[in-house]
Design a binder for these strands. Structure first.
Lengths: 208, 208, 208, 208
DNA sequence: TATGAATGAGTATTCATTCAT
DNA sequence: TATGAATGAATACTCATTCAT
């Protein structure tokens, strides 16, 4: 019986260590920005030798990809949990849009991480092709509740997707301003701006 | 006599050389992305030794900052010229908003450059404090025509600034999506999205 | 009862496993060259963890040494079998010389292995002192049939050894040229060269 | 006038430094064998930072290639000078063959270097394709005096090349034995062996 | 007997920057 | 104003080996 448990335990601690490394990576990301987050610095933060990380991840990029994937899953959970509690489609639409913004507003380290996808040249780089597609899909899934609610409210597929894109764009723009504190230039409150935008969309579609 | 002319000439060519280096830097930016643009590669592209650049710029960051500054000036010129041609305040508002988006949409290398300001940790880093403020001001100046037109149309100062921030945010968000080709996920046309947003703002303020 | 059998079995499988590891090592040698053959790659090819190999061999060098030893035994068997079939001493001399060359010519991976002994600085390195002497003896044993046949034909001990050395040297030189394809430079056929050399020796000693 | 000299001097010292690095590399080769001769170790031996070597050579392989090329040129000079002094074609043949052997026999570090060409898998590796061809040609040039003398003595082209290959092979084989001290196994004197071989060739061709 | 995790030393190469000339 | 040479710190990644389990 102990033998039956042992392997499970080992797996558990292995996963735990992986998680600890990812957490360390996230901290480095947060504190030093993307440039400072080398494999070395992540290893140091995690209390490991650089070489040790290769037992848990096959390359530096894999760490980034897993970190990002984990972040997107947390975002998805955050949104799903909140949307589920809402009763009407209108409320769900509002909640889906707001919580996307809210998650990143409250977790700036995840924002840095998320924006990693939006760096580099025309094509996102530093993450392999298939990995990139997977991440794209995960991002799409986070925003899907927006389209779902919209469709319940009578929107067609194209409008649903349009609303996903709009809300993503507006959120991201505001977060970028807020995150870099440049929003002060305009003496605006990011949360208020986002609320206004969502309300505007609802009014525009005559959903209230 | 030649010696009397020399200093003037030198000053003239000095500015020219500086410009040539910046142009080279922009080309490198364009071709290799921000990450690939080392001081070395800029020097090579400009036909110089890395060490030579230090006669024109005090650090790699200064090159980036000046490049960005130059880009913001070009943006400002682009917007001003187009806004000036419009007769009514309503048209000027529309033009100011559209041409901000349009400039970056057509010049993706300037977008990469502009987003450089929005990287790093919470605080914009890699650019010194006073330089950062100067760049902030230059960005503000580019968007100012939006507020000016809005105020002509009856908006108060706060609303003017709010519109600057909104349009900046929405443009940036769309450009980010378009620039990284992730907009395909949502099957949307970035230009159409931006046009719709501007129209929405005008309708919302009852300016049409 | 099963426990009583176990030790015997284990011993048997232990030798088998050792052999399997050596075979894997040889394959790696063959495919990736000597430089590419790390302990890791050998372990992977053998279906083991690197650490597991340390139960069978005390170091990476020991694997090389045993592999080499095994190769020299195969060479010895190859030569002995063929020499035994020859009836006259003259034929045996010819066969001993030719089959030494022939074995390596047909088994280039064994040649790489054999040349491993002839690398490093002035002193053969990477193989311990006593191991080196053992390998020397094994090499000597492979060439011994040459001297034996020569002595039967009337050569004294010194001439016998001289012929061993000559034939070893000439074979090795030709194989080196052939193995690295540099023999093309001289537009020669390695097998013909070796045959000529052996014939020359026989003529020189007036053994035909 | 001093200005006219300056650039020359600089070039000279630059070449000198290059040479000093190559000398250091040769020493490392000699002392630590090929495996020990990393860029780091060469730099250390030369009294430089690893990075500094990149001002003089574009890669580690270039250092190896230049070292090898330099060694082959020295070999060629050694042979040419000695052959030139001989009056009859017969003497030139003998000298060309002997001095090839003699050079490597007296300069074991050059032998290690030369054997570098004969390592790796079937195809020589670690040196680029065109570099490899150049080195091949240089090796051929070193041996060319053998064929030239042979042709003067009436050999056709094929026989000339055959003699080059034979002498190369025999020399190399003996050197390998001597270099690794395995020649002791056979209680032979390498120089005598080589002399005997050359004499044999001359007798065989009836050139004496 | 075997593994997974870890280390420490090592690999070549790149970087921004400095400095004597 | 410009260069060539140099540095020191950094980059990701590999290696043989060890050890607790």
């Amino acid at each position: 019986m102990p033998q039956a448990i042992e392997p499970k335990r080992k797996k558990a601690t292995s996963a735990e260590k992986k998680r600890m490394i990812l957490d360390a990576a996230k901290r480095v990301f947060e504190e030093e920005g993307l440039e400072g987050s080398s494999l070395r610095s992540i290893a140091a933060e995690a209390g490991y030798t650089p070489a040790a990380l290769y037992f848990h991840f096959s390359s530096r990029e894999e760490i980034y990809a897993e970190l990002l994937s984990q972040s997107l899953h947390q975002l998805k959970d955050y949104i799903d949990q909140r949307v589920r509690k809402r009763e009407t489609a209108g409320e769900r639409f509002e909640e889906a849009a707001w919580s996307f913004f809210d998650f990143y507003n409250k977790n700036p380290e995840d924002l840095s991480l998320g924006l990693y996808l939006f760096r580099g040249g025309i094509e996102p780089q530093g993450v392999g092709r298939e990995r990139n597609q997977k991440l794209n899909q995960e991002l799409y899934d986070c925003l899907a509740p927006i389209a779902e609610a919209a469709e319940e409210l009578g929107a067609d597929k194209h409008l649903g997707q349009n609303l996903m894109a709009r809300i993503f764009a507006h959120s991201t723009g505001i977060l970028l301003l807020a995150h870099t504190k440049r929003i002060r230039l305009f003496e605006q409150d990011p949360e208020q701006m986002m609320r206004d935008y969502i309300e505007e969309q609802i009014k525009e579609q005559n959903w209230n």
